[in-house]
Simulated scan of single mutants.
Amino acid sequence: MLTAGRLRLLIALIIITPFLVWWGLGGSTLPKNPVVREETRSTYDFFMRDNESRYWDENGNLARSWESQEMHHYPARNSSQLLEPIAHMPQQGGGTYKIRANDGWVLDDQSEIQLAGNVEVNHNPQSGPGSLLTTSTLNVFPPRNYAETDAPATLTRNGERTESTGLEVYFDERRVELLSNVRGRYDAP
């Protein structure tokens, strides 16, 4: 004989059993085919924090090193974004160039590095006075030891201050070519 409690339990089992069978036999809420996210130019595949990269020349000497607070690699762009990059480029005759910026992009093949925001190039020669170049953007081409900008730039060295619109830097030759609107000032010590 069925009591009222057992009758309620039997009715509840009859109502729930079809849902449990449906769920167990393939009524899963997971998709049948995995969803593949389309890669866009804004999709990065990895990132690194507090990273440093070193590059060596064919003779085994340090050619340059780069460090940044954060780096995101974008495979669709074949490049990486660098947050607050700093570069060190030692020179054959001694001394070094130290380059820093707020932001940068480096191509995967290392052929070009695009820097933007408070770009500074400090030249610290082994002997003689150093120099400081400041600009808003700078494209560096490491394989050629060359850099250029079309933006306004200021070069300061040993009391001399020279401003120009656009310039070219030849790191190996320790030479800077000022392109246009050149103005200079010398402050005697």
Rank of each mutant, 00 (worst) to 15 (best):
G93C: 06
L9V: 10
R157H: 09
A12T: 09
G24R: 02
Y170Q: 11
M48A: 15
S65A: 10
P189Y: 06
N145C: 06
D109M: 02
R8E: 08
D45K: 07
P31Q: 04
D50F: 07
S42T: 13
R144M: 09
L20D: 06
D108T: 12
Y146C: 08
M48L: 13
T43M: 05
D45G: 11
S127F: 05
S65K: 12
Y74E: 06
S131W: 06
M71P: 02
A76M: 15
D150W: 06
Q81I: 08
D57G: 14
R77A: 11
A153D: 00
Q126M: 13
L115P: 01
L9R: 11
G27Q: 04
I99G: 01
R6W: 09
W56C: 05
T165W: 02
L179S: 05
S42K: 08
G93D: 09
W105D: 06
L132Q: 10
E39F: 11
R6C: 08
L82H: 00
T17Y: 02
T40M: 02
S180A: 15
E112H: 04
A147T: 03
A116P: 00
N139V: 15
I15T: 11
R41W: 05
G159D: 01
L10H: 03
R144E: 12
I113E: 01
L83Q: 07
R41S: 12
L7H: 07
S42R: 08
I16M: 13
A4S: 12
R100N: 10
V121D: 00
V21M: 12
I11R: 07
N33G: 08
T154W: 00
Q110A: 14
Y186T: 12
I14L: 13
G166I: 02
R77G: 01
Y44L: 07
T29L: 12
T135V: 13
I99E: 01
T135D: 02
